[in-house]
Nucleic acid binder design. Structure first.
Lengths: 340, 340
DNA sequence: CTCATTTGAGCAAACGATTGCATTTTAAAA
DNA sequence: TTTTAAAATGCAATCGTTTGCTCAAATGAG
């Protein structure tokens, strides 16, 4: 029971035909008669034939594997996107290899290398915060391996991608804060190299201007967007006696940190300071008060990314990337207690 | 630039030796002289040779792929375990295919099939809540594919695994609640088919008994362990005017739901009711009050699981599983405000 | 009833690496 | 110098499918 034999040759032998015929029958090749196909299928089932994907990958050059690279699967957003990709991929008989870059540049490069070596048929990626150099992605493109990016992208890469309208999401959130009375809104953001932070900041600024408020650089704070970073930034502005009555953070984790620190200092939320985050992480609805945030439409993003990817894979104009398609999704402002 | 040619034959041609020699040189076979190895390596680099894993997988029967099945990668615990596995695997030149069962039995079976078809060299899994039948795992074992389970296991499967001492974790949490004054502790649990819920319940019961308290079946509530389930169960006991002063939940999400409902009803936590969860999900330290919980040692679990797996893979006694090894990790009680 | 088509299937060469066995080269022993 | 063992490399089959091309049978047209 150890060796899983059953090859197309076994089927062929049983039917007194050749392996090529069996192969064609299994692949539903029109050159084979329906009768033969039926017989082949029957015997295949009978002897429990399992196709050897490795052999087929070697010969055909198609591995039926697609690589997905995300910073971390441990975030609601990314795992939802992955689920969307997986669903479509599996239904088309593709397997997904998920690899995480943990926002480390070296790991991202290694992952790409490894995926190429594993001969994936294509790659879907959202790159890490440290990524400034895109040679590894260019290599993918040069090799004619279909590539689609989502969420975190770069303009210098002329590649199909699907992103969120981060600008709009930020604009809406900030506009909402202002409409609810905020006059001096702090903004937490991260390196401007990354499109999403750049766009969110732009949305923040434009919303202020549109409401006749001035953009005060002192209110724009840079840092990583983890919980701890949010705490640190908030401690800072409190220590520095910055005058503020609202915080719009580029990420939910950071705004969560802010909430903690504000409460520790006895500052009322939303009474004295109103908050809004970005990402709609589950915990934003667990906290007290619950946190207003922007939903990133992760499910749609996954679905659309996958669709775009397979379109590219099939419409495969000989590795020649056709026109790069860009899809921009509309975000949704989720209003909760922290901004009321 | 489209086709990535460079095979061992190209290297061989350049050096006027055969492909077999090149292959052996690249695999550091002792039968090849150091001089030849050096030359081969040099040319390989020079012409940018990338080994074709597919070809090697076909011939050698080793894909250098390992499959990991988890209910969902979207949970801190699982993603940490995955990270542990990935780290070791990558350092040994293995790639990890992550697949999620979403706690659906059918998906789990499909995933196993798909992994076997992808010719993974082994499988690491934690199965879903709906899994009662283990034929798909038996198939893996029969085929001689190394299998290691973690966290969610079944006694009927005589397979190496690493689990947490759920009994101890529960015991400590409940003992802690009692020491802090609780007399009537509600327990949230899930289907008893799953080892972890069974053990946690046992720990709960024994801790009560050891402290001279009786086990009241009316205080043991069954349900899924999502946030919503925790809310529902809590609403229920409040409606039914159940007398309780503590809740020990098998999962953090459910205890979070309980906290929300308690607050909505103006019941003070930890004043009137003290809480403890299980899992140490990040949000337990974000909530107000922060929630006492049991840490599952996910990092260690990932590391140990991977080590055990590769031991099995290498010590490969011809697919014949040696003795199933079982490792049990000690949990850690994290005391926070909800139980003070 | 022949000749040209279509249709169905077989042959054999890939795909790129690995590996048991054979052979050559080198070095040591006689 | 001849013999022998050890060291280094070559030969060729193999892993299981796929696929271009060839070939035979069946069908249709003239």
């Amino acid at each position: 029971m150890k060796n899983n034999k059953a090859t197309i040759h076994d089927i062929a032998a049983k039917l007194n035909i050749t392996a090529s015929t069996v192969s064609r029958a299994l692949n539903n090749n029109p050159r084979i008669s329906d009768e033969t196909k039926k017989k082949v299928l029957k015997v295949a089932k009978q002897i429990n034939y399992q196709p050897n994907h490795i052999a087929s990958a070697l010969r055909s050059g198609k591995s039926k594997l697609i690589g997905v690279i995300v910073p971390t699967a441990n975030r609601n957003f990314f795992s939802s996107v992955i689920r969307g990709i997986e669903d479509l991929a599996n239904s088309l008989n593709y397997k997904v290899i998920i690899s995480q870059s943990y926002d480390e540049y070296d790991k991202e490069v290694q992952n790409i290398e490894a995926l190429i070596n594993a001969r994936v048929d294509g790659i879907i990626a959202s790159f890490g915060k440290m990524t400034e150099n895109f040679d590894h992605f260019h290599k993918v493109i040069e090799k004619g391996i279909p590539l689609v990016l989502f969420d975190r992208t770069a303009d210098v890469l002329d590649v199909s991608h699907v992103i969120l309208d981060d600008y709009l999401g930020a604009y809406q959130a900030v506009d909402h804060l202002i409409k609810n009375g905020c006059k001096r809104i702090v903004h937490f953001t991260n390196v401007q190299r990354i499109n999403i932070y750049r766009e969110r900041k732009r949305g923040y600024e434009d919303a202020l201007k549109a409401n006749g408020l001035e953009v005060d650089p002192a209110l724009i704070l840079y840092g990583n967007m983890q919980l701890e970073d949010g705490r640190k930034l908030t401690e800072e502005i409190i220590q520095n006696k910055v005058d503020f009555d609202g915080i719009f953070s580029s990420a939910d984790y950071a705004v969560m940190g802010a909430l903690q620190v504000l409460k520790e200092h006895g500052i009322a939320v939303p009474g004295q300071v109103k908050l809004a985050g970005f990402g709609n992480e589950p915990f934003t609805s667990f906290s007290d008060p619950t946190i207003t945030t922007v939903d990133q439409k992760s499910i749609s993003m996954g679905k659309i990314t996958a669709e775009m990817f397979f379109e590219m894979l099939n419409g495969n104009t000989n590795g020649q990337v056709a026109v790069a398609k860009k899809t921009i999704l509309k975000p949704e402002l989720i209003i909760r207690d922290s901004s009321k």
